Simulated assay, not measured.
Amino acid sequence: MPSTQFREQIAELSAQLAGRPLDASLDAWLNAKHGVETPTFEHLKQSCQAGVSEGWLCDREGGGIRYGRIFKPAPDLHGFSVDVVDMQDIAGPHHTHPNGEIDLIMPLDAGAQFDGRPAGWLVCPPGSSHRPTVTGGRALVLYLLPEGSITFTR
Rank of each mutant, 00 (worst) to 15 (best):
F80Y: 13
F41Y: 15
I105H: 03
D103T: 00
D83W: 02
V82D: 07
H43Y: 08
L57E: 11
H34N: 06
V52T: 07
P98I: 12
E42K: 09
H78V: 07
G62I: 14
M106S: 04
V84N: 12
L44P: 00
R60V: 04
S81H: 09
P93A: 14
I105Q: 05
G100P: 03
I102P: 01
K72F: 04
Y67Q: 10
S47R: 08
M87T: 04
D89S: 06
I105V: 15
L104T: 06
I70Y: 01
P73I: 12
M106I: 03
V84Q: 12
D86A: 04
P75Q: 00
E61G: 09
F71Y: 15
Y67L: 13
I90R: 05
D83H: 05
P93C: 06
Q46L: 13
V84E: 13
G55D: 03
G64L: 02
L57R: 11
V85L: 13
K45R: 13
E54D: 07
A91M: 01
E54A: 08
P98S: 08
Q88N: 00
I102S: 01
T40N: 07
F80G: 05
L104C: 10
H78C: 12
G68R: 04
N99S: 11
E61M: 09
G79W: 03
T96L: 14
D83F: 00
V84C: 14
C48V: 12
G64H: 01
C58W: 04
P39S: 15
H97T: 10
M87Q: 07
A91T: 10
S53W: 12
G62A: 14
A74R: 06
L77R: 07
Q46M: 10
H34G: 01
H34V: 05
R60M: 11
S81Q: 09
R69E: 15
N99V: 15
A91H: 00
S47I: 10
S47F: 01
H78F: 15
